[in-house]
């Protein structure tokens, strides 16, 4: 009981005084964020503002120069990305990174590595534990595909799917690790307008159905305005504004930095 109460009160993601320098360049400067369970937050900023760097720091690809990142209350300092994912922070990429020569089903199955529960020798002797786990993994994977309405593509290769479906599959794959926090890096990039509408529906549906906290980078302002309850704006690694979409829309600093001096 006690642990349950604790998880309800700890933020899913907490970033304190995060600074990242690449040589002389400060990509992220004194960045703070607290995401409580169930939030759907946005992160925007002009190109090169440091958005993806923040995501890369959270998922463990870079070790921060200064500051602290806590995923579900656990500091991630020194953890490799696969460990961070096991803590409950999954992500997608700006350019789709699926395993293109593995079937759709295998793409989902391999993402279960964090809770595989068996090793090399089990896989060779096909022990009881191996068989149980493989059956569970296969069941879970096909259930997930069914939920995402991707079941009919199960034996297809991802490279043969339409772009929008690939996006969907990548999000499904990220969710197969049962994350508490889902980082979406420009999910609408490269989608046409009808796909974008579908994506908005999909993200909202995921947010409710999977009970997951979502933090999203996105350039499509309509996606952001539609989905996010809170938006944080960064430029040159500094936080320049944060608040509700309406607040951000009219914030003078945002208009100057992100949308330019002209009218939208």
């Amino acid at each position: 009981m006690q642990t349950q109460v604790q998880t309800e009160t700890t933020p899913v993601l907490e970033i304190r005084k995060l600074t990242q320098r690449f040589g002389g360049l400060t990509a992220v400067n004194d960045f703070n964020v607290r995401l409580m369970p169930g939030e759907l937050t946005g992160l925007i900023g002009p190109n090169g503002a440091g958005k993806t760097t923040v995501f890369n720091l959270v998922s463990g690809f870079y070790q921060p120069t200064e500051g602290e990142i806590l995923v579900d209350g656990v500091p991630t300092a020194g953890l490799r990305p696969h460990k961070v994912t096991a803590l409950g922070a999954a992500r997608t990429f700006q350019n789709i990174r699926l395993w293109n020569d593995m079937t759709v089903l295998d793409n989902i199955r391999v993402a279960q590595h964090y809770q595989l529960g068996y090793g090399f020798f089990h896989s060779v002797v096909r022990s009881k534990r191996y068989k149980e786990r493989e059956a569970e993994i296969a069941k879970e994977a096909s259930e997930l595909l069914e939920v995402f309405d991707l079941q009919r593509y199960a034996e297809e290769l991802p490279k043969n799917l339409p772009y929008g479906t690939q996006r969907k599959l990548e999000i499904a794959r990220a969710l197969s690790s049962h994350p508490k926090l889902l980082l979406l890096d420009e999910p609408a990039a490269g989608l046409n307008s009808s796909d974008v509408l579908e994506l908005i529906r999909l993200v909202r549906w995921i947010h409710e159905k999977f009970d997951v906290t979502i933090w999203m980078i996105e350039h499509h302002m309509d996606v952001m305005m539609e989905l996010a309850t809170q938006i944080k704006v960064i430029d040159f690694g500094e936080t320049i504004a944060e608040g509700t979409p309406d607040h951000i829309r009219n914030h003078p600093a945002v208009i100057t930095a992100y949308l330019g001096d002209d009218n939208i």
Binding site: H82, N100, V110, Y130
Partner: peptide, 25 residues
């Protein structure tokens, strides 16, 4: 096995493998 398919995942996209909880090392 799902375990061994991690090897293929490394071949096709090592970054994605690492982020999808495959202990690549």
């Amino acid at each position: 096995s799902t375990y061994g398919k991690g090897v293929n995942a490394i071949c096709q996209d090592e970054v994605a493998a690492e982020i999808m909880s495959v202990n690549t090392n």
